[in-house]
């Protein structure tokens, strides 16, 4: 039984929590607000918070100057492609681990996870060299494959935990009800697995979108995604806060929205099921 709490206590909790929450969120909020200011307002002292001339000018400038859409498109292709490819490869693997486990299943799973722990910098040069040799440096397909491989252990793992939650009795019930293998897959297993697969896709899309080691080191122009686009702002150039904010807002907005949907999956996916 949860105990009833006095209204005063609840109000105090609310006040403290909202203050802390807004403080943590402030950099994001500030970035979004600044993106609508003029460059002069962006550095005004004291800072203007809400009462300024809202303008969309910065977004236009950013697009014009660096062709934002191309970077966005690269991000979509790389994050989306690597996630989908990963799921395609992982579904059969996770499936057989969950429903036809063998004595080695556990070891294989743990080994897969351990490959995720391999520090990227340790294999940076070999991968770099291989990309040069194969002529795929700054190539979207190469990044799709590399990010897929990086996230494959997490994808397999998440799918495995979701599949394992489908109770065996349901499959037996379907068999008693006269479902053959085909019907079992079509009417019972797939509909039950879809939410898990969707969550897996969501979280891995986010992880791939934000990946910033390989995308920075293996791209220059053609395949560069948003991570690299933002990094190009790292050398200051006169008044650029508002433009930087606009560029940042565009880079994080889609993923912030997706991220809010994936809070639960985040715990499951990133702790490998060790915290529930």
């Amino acid at each position: 039984m949860a105990r009833a709490v006095t209204t005063q206590r609840k109000a105090l909790n609310t006040a403290v929590a909202w203050t802390v929450g807004l403080l943590i969120f402030f950099p994001i909020l500030w970035t979004v607000l600044t993106s609508f200011k003029t460059e002069a307002e962006a550095i005004a002292n004291p800072p203007v918070i809400l009462f300024f001339d809202w303008t969309l000018e910065n977004y236009g400038v950013v697009q014009e100057r660096s062709n934002y859409m191309r970077f966005l498109w690269n991000s979509v292709i790389i994050a989306g492609g690597s996630t989908l490819l990963g799921v395609l490869i992982a579904v059969p693997a996770a499936w057989s681990m969950a429903f036809v486990p063998s004595k080695r299943t556990k070891d294989i799973l743990l080994w897969m996870l351990s490959t995720k722990m391999l520090p990227a910098v340790g294999v940076l040069y070999p991968i770099y060299l291989l990309c040069i040799q194969l002529g795929v440096l700054d190539n979207r397909v190469a990044l799709v494959v590399i990010l897929m491989l990086i996230n494959l252990p997490i994808i397999v793992w998440m799918l495995y935990t979701y599949f394992r939650e489908i109770p065996g009795e349901i499959l037996e019930a379907a068999r008693m009800d006269g479902a053959g293998l085909k019907e079992e897959l079509l009417y019972v297993l797939t509909p039950m697995a879809v939410p898990g697969i969707a969550s897996t896709i969501l979280l891995n899309f986010i992880l791939a979108w934000n990946e910033a080691f390989w995308t920075l080191n293996l791209t220059s122009v053609d395949a560069a995604p948003l991570t690299a686009f933002i990094a190009s702002y790292s050398s200051p150039e006169g008044l650029f806060f508002a433009k930087l904010s606009a560029a940042s807002t565009m880079a994080i907005a889609p993923i912030l929205i997706l991220g809010w949907f994936s809070q639960k999956q985040l715990v499951r996916g990133l702790t490998f099921g060790a915290v529930k």
Binding site: E169, I170, A173, M192
Partner: peptide
């Protein structure tokens, strides 16, 4: 004979209802 062809019906401990239907 496979389970479905035996003409028997079963009620499971966990009910084993299809959650999406």
């Amino acid at each position: 004979v496979p389970p479905a062809k035996r003409g028997l019906a079963m009620v499971f401990q966990s009910y084993a209802l299809y959650p999406h239907m």
